[in-house]
Amino acid sequence: MSEPIDDLIDKLAAESGRVRRLASPMTRAAIWLLAVGTLSALAVFSFADLPLFISRMGDAKLQLEVAGIFLTGIAAIVAAFHLSLPDRSSGWALLPLPPLALWIGSSGYSCWRQWIQYGPEGWSLGESADCFRMILGVSIPLAAALLLALAKAKPLNSVPVAAVGGLGVAAIAALLLQFFHPFDVTFMDLGIHVVAVGLVIFGSAASSRFIRQPDPQASRG
């Protein structure tokens, strides 16, 4: 063994002490989701028009859409916590894809139905600007809180971790939107939603530098 490596091992051993083990990714994801779920429930019960939402939920199409959004959020957050650990399969990144397909498919069907029903008006811009603002406004603080939680694992490959996490928080924001946005979406609305979710994923991935491992030169000072 070369001398610098031997010296480094002595130094690391000398400065090592008892460390607090990180809880399992499922536990960490559950705690994070529970905290966010509690805050979201408070906001919904305080400000949303629940009777209107409940009456709209009678539509099977909307039930599928909400289920898709809800499951995308849960799956993406769970996947992000798993991906943050070095020995977990990168296949976890695929977990949110089936519910995401359900979300996009059911929203697309809804837009198509609008188009058939209202003709060219089905392409008009509905309440898109508000939706856009709400998705970004809710996602940004949630993404910051999620990156903070993920940073505890000091992920080695932080970009996919942050990107999948970004999808998770964007889905949570879109789910909350359903309570405050009691309208059927047009194709234009759906496009704006997709852009907003894409921006959240991109922004989160771009912020991944804050949680990644430092380069060797930086770490050796």
Binding site: P4, I5, I9, L12, S219
Partner: peptide, 19 residues
């Protein structure tokens, strides 16, 4: 040797993540 040292340093920083 550089990679070995970097892996040792990384392992030291994330040793709390081992289950």
């Amino acid at each position: 040797d550089d990679v070995v040292q970097d892996v040792l340093l990384t392992l030291h920083r994330i040793r709390h993540t081992y289950d």
